[in-house]
Amino acid sequence: MIEATHLTKRYGRILALDNVTFRVQRGEIVGFLGPNGAGKTTTMRIISTYLPATGGTVRVCGVDVLDDPLAVRRHIGYMPENVPLYPEMRVREYLRYRGTLKGLRGRRLRARVEEAMAACDLGDVRRRVIGRLSKGYAQRVGLADALLHEPDVLIMDEPTLGLDPNQQRRVRDLIRSLARRHTVLLSSHILSEVEQTCERVLIIDKGRVVASDTPQRLVSFLRGEPHVRMEIQGPADAVVEKVMALPHVRNVACETKGGWQHLTCRCARGADVRPALFALAAAEQWTVRELRLEQSNLEDVFAELTSEQGGEGVASPDAAGREAAA
């Protein structure tokens, strides 16, 4: 659906994108992550034909964005960052105008406007002037606009920016429901949201793709070993010694606070040592106050890949292979 090959973009002497290559398959929901200024918006603008690339190619549904930008625009529903709308227009009037620009006519235009408003829950505000809408509603008008002509590809730059948690959840549900009929590429700073919504994540930093894989695989690749945290009452030395003796436990850190031993056990990948720990505590008659498995999340991966000291250029083996193949 989207194929970006060796994409480069320069703004004067600033290199915004440096040889970016990735592919998005039909029906995928791909999250585009990166710190501010990493090149996410530039990439989205190039795909949506708003900006030309300095080098490389982008093909959307098999069409090169430079060869036939109008054909590409017919395949794409683009929701820019901050959702620029005309404040003096009414919601339905705006959507009808946008639908006309996107080639919809007559009954089909009316039907699609109604469907897009229903999908984005805009029925109550259809006659409201856009300038008087809340941020959440304005965001949904932008989303309805992107959906109007039933595009094959949806590109959304920060679709939940400025929304309250309830609105974020509604937009997230809506995006997930779109995956059946559309290919979705979205950028977001809310990592938990990307983790919940997207099947695959592209992490971009300083204009380069540094990782591309499913959120779960990225997490397991970078922080493969899970941790178990435990708060237990017992003699510190004996606790450490017996826990270390358990199978799959690689390392134990112990800290005593207020008579309780706070243990952090690093375990082998894929192993869950909690039942063994509980059985040990029961056998030794140690009191257990807390026992939980801690997995790394996408936020840790993001920080590791994009921080100054982070693993620049680190990508999961799968990502490297996939991008090389692309």
Partner: peptide, 14 residues
């Protein structure tokens, strides 16, 4: 200023 040019120029119009 509004940024609506981006929305306009990514619709299929010349």
């Amino acid at each position: 200023r509004l940024g609506s040019l981006e929305a306009l120029m990514t619709a299929p119009v010349t």
